[in-house]
């Protein structure tokens, strides 16, 4: 195992970016999944297509769009620059890239979880005196936990592997925006660094396996609780 300080920084940054992206996307992902599953409104199809778009677009394309949006002359970038916020080529840009790319996976899983809820449970809650927001937090949310958990694990794992969009909006600056995949990419381009690349690959495998195990463990725990 061969890890230099820059590698350790890359591992830390990868975890930080993936975790932040997942946590940031969760409330919005839940809200959008809820809208799609439980509400009927005009333009629902458009929303569904928009949410799923990052799943089919090449990540590089997403990165390029984000760059146009958030860059110095982008319409959001301009506004942010005026308030002194600079996103491009910082770790925050990597978070936005990961959040965008992983978002459809999150929404999909939560949606599946919500679709498996019997509508009559919602009806029962409403007829027992709960307004829609009360039902949302006391019935829908707890009963979609499996989906939320599955979506979060998927999104976290996807964020760890994010490369194409990240390299465009955040760059590949060691110690600042260099995540594990970017570091491996650097090592892979020089023949003498095979061992270093392999070490990071191993770390990737360990993190992924841990995430999957943790997910299974939580699901088991959830099942046990509901069968009490």
């Amino acid at each position: 195992m061969l890890l230099i300080p820059e590698d350790i920084a890359a591992i830390g940054l990868s975890l930080k970016v993936a975790l932040t992206a997942t946590l940031l996307a969760l409330p919005l992902g839940f809200a959008i999944a809820w809208l799609i599953v439980f509400r009927t409104f005009r333009g629902k199809v458009v929303l569904e297509v928009l949410v799923n778009l990052p799943l089919t677009l090449p990540p590089v394309v997403i990165g390029y769009f984000l760059l146009l949006l958030l860059g110095k002359n982008g319409w959001l970038g301009k506004v942010l620059a005026e308030t002194g916020i600079q996103l491009i080529f910082t770790w925050k840009a990597a978070v936005i890239a990961s959040a965008t790319v992983g978002f459809p996976l999150l929404v999909r899983s939560i949606r599946l979880g919500m679709e498996s809820i019997d509508r009559q449970l919602i009806d029962a809650s409403r007829s027992l005196g709960a307004p829609w927001y009360d039902t949302l937090f006391t019935i829908t949310l707890p009963l979609s936990l499996r989906g939320i958990l599955a979506g979060s694990s998927l999104m976290f794992a996807r964020s760890l592997g994010e490369f194409g969009a990240t390299i465009i909006v955040a760059g590949n600056i060691p110690g600042i925006t260099q995540t594990i995949p970017l570091a491996i990419y650097d090592y892979a381009s020089s023949p003498s660094s095979t061992a270093m690349a392999l070490s990071l690959c191993l770390v990737s495998v360990v993190i992924s396996v841990t995430v999957l195990f943790l997910h299974e463990l939580l699901i088991k725990k959830l099942d046990r609780r509901s069968s009490l």
Binding site: D123, R126, P142, L143
Partner: peptide, 27 residues
Amino acid sequence: PEERRIAIVFQQAMLFPHLSVKANLLY
């Protein structure tokens, strides 16, 4: 519906699976 005070007993009991019997009763 929540303001009508019309309660329903469904064909299937439709108890909230994540709550205890007591919590269901008091919902």
